[in-house]
Design a protein around this nucleic acid. Structure first.
Lengths: 288, 288
DNA sequence: TATGGATCCATA
DNA sequence: TATGGATCCATA
């Protein structure tokens, strides 16, 4: 697979080590992109010429599925000790719901404690955790609750948090974390991916963020409306305006190496439903 | 329809007139939300209790379609002189492709001119437009071109621009523009909507932005994965960090008033992975 | 239940 | 061709 651009959106690199970390991470991502081949024994990544999406009877048909692209990319990086589905930092958690309990629960996704004070205006709750320490957390000024704030004081409660979801891949370089998002979801999903990395940079949780996204030319061979560089371009000014103190955010743009009659059609994902699978195969045969 | 929250993300209001504009626009949005009723002659907006989405055999079924919600909302505001599908400002345009031409074209979406200079590093092109003026524009440092930069000098060219897409609704209050985005697309689409309004605020093109979005409770009665307040909550810090000079960005959160056996099922379209129309009708009959 | 994703639709 | 949207999927 080719790399056509490498666009830096945020670049607040304050020391040599930081630059080295970003450079190393970038090289590893590039290596994983470079390794993507189709057909498997080819010298690059080719699509079958007939797999290009086109409009017939006002319907867009064709296009390759995207999962066969993403999976080998993740695989290569996991072998370089990147960890997939890495959770976004808990320190960004915001408590959105508080519920008084009779008995202690054990849900891993909830926080348990005894309420000491609630300050809606400053979005802050203080509570005693199970080891008896007084700790504080951020609350949504309008968190959900069945009970008045006063009645919650002194009660044992569960607290539901809201946090950004997982990152595709992460790796620690020393004590600094770099995140990678491979984006072949809908273009709007690329907005969320960049938002997530920009937010984590803003809060100092990660030191580097890399978005890998196809260009529009490559998009023509894939599922309609997947993320592409050109369509994100007009929004760069927004991400560039985020006032991070340190860190780096970049977009790496990829494109297939060309077309080749020997390249396979990449199946589209109807995983898990054998019935749909059959229909899909029939459709594929009709199209190609 | 109920309004459950009104969350301000950016509030850089510098004069009384500005406050009045934001307040007026907000009231008009609230009025349009308030007017949403189902059944049509009811005192509020109710869903049929059986229309709540649920999981059967590992498949999520049910849920109302979202178009029947959005359309009357837009209609009310158009009657209050809001304009729909309002184009995002051309001054944010970035030139992403330049092509030498033999003859002048007339496409409305392209810029035509004779190139005077190209400065990739500073992302700037100077050209002579058809009235002979020298003007400049922003280019992508890696804009597409068949020709070398030097060869483009003195040539008549077309320039393709990239710009954010339309806004759902806009209205001028004096010379200041307020934008509204109604978000019942996918949650990631809400990220784009907020990004768009934040960007336009950053560039001073709009003075106010309003996102209308359901809360999670209401989302349970609608298409899976539509935008909802709770899921956006963890990202507020990002939009709040955007360094705007003046303007206002808010989220208005809506919820249905309850359930009622007399409420209709709101029909769904065939987007995404929906089964085709005929099948859909059969499924609906099975469910309800 | 919750979150990221993959897929196709409507329309200018 | 281009952009916002609507819909259902996979999985922890």
């Amino acid at each position: 697979m080719k790399i056509t651009k490498n666009v830096v959106l945020l670049d607040a690199i304050n020391d040599i080590e930081s630059r080295e970390i970003v450079d190393t991470a970038t090289l590893e991502v590039m290596e994983a992109i470079n390794k993507l081949k189709s057909p498997i024994d080819a010298d690059g990544f080719y699509f079958h010429p007939d797999s290009k999406a086109r409009v017939v009877n006002k319907k867009r048909i064709g296009g390759n599925g995207v999962k066969p692209l993403k999976e080998p990319f993740l695989e290569t990086l996991k072998q370089l000790n990147w960890v997939d589905e890495f959770p976004s930092q808990t320190k960004l958690d915001v408590i959105v719901k508080i519920r008084a309990l009779k008995n202690a629960g054990t849900s891993k996704s909830l926080i348990y404690g005894t309420v000491i004070s609630i300050d809606r205006e400053n979005e802050r709750i203080v509570y005693k955790n199970k080891t008896g320490e007084e700790v504080f957390a951020v609350i949504d000024a309008e968190f959900e609750s069945d009970t008045s704030d006063d009645d919650l004081i002194g009660k044992f409660v569960s607290m539901t948090t809201a946090t950004p979801g997982d990152l595709d891949l992460c790796k620690f370089f020393g004590d600094r974390l770099v995140a990678i998002e491979w984006e072949t979801g809908n273009i709007s999903s690329s907005h969320r991916a960049l938002n997530k990395m920009a937010l984590l940079l803003l809060h100092g949780h990660i030191h580097g963020g890399v978005l890998v996204v196809p260009n529009r030319n490559m998009g023509k061979y894939l599922t309609d409306r997947i993320g592409n560089y050109e369509e994100l371009r007009p929004y760069f000014g927004l991400w560039r305006s985020v006032p991070i103190i340190s860190g780096h955010l970049q977009i790496i743009v990829i494109e297939h190496d060309g077309t080749d009659e020997k390249a396979p059609f990449l199946t589209k994902g109807n995983d898990g439903l054998a019935e749909k699978q059959d229909e899909e195969e029939v459709v594929s045969m009709e199209l190609f």
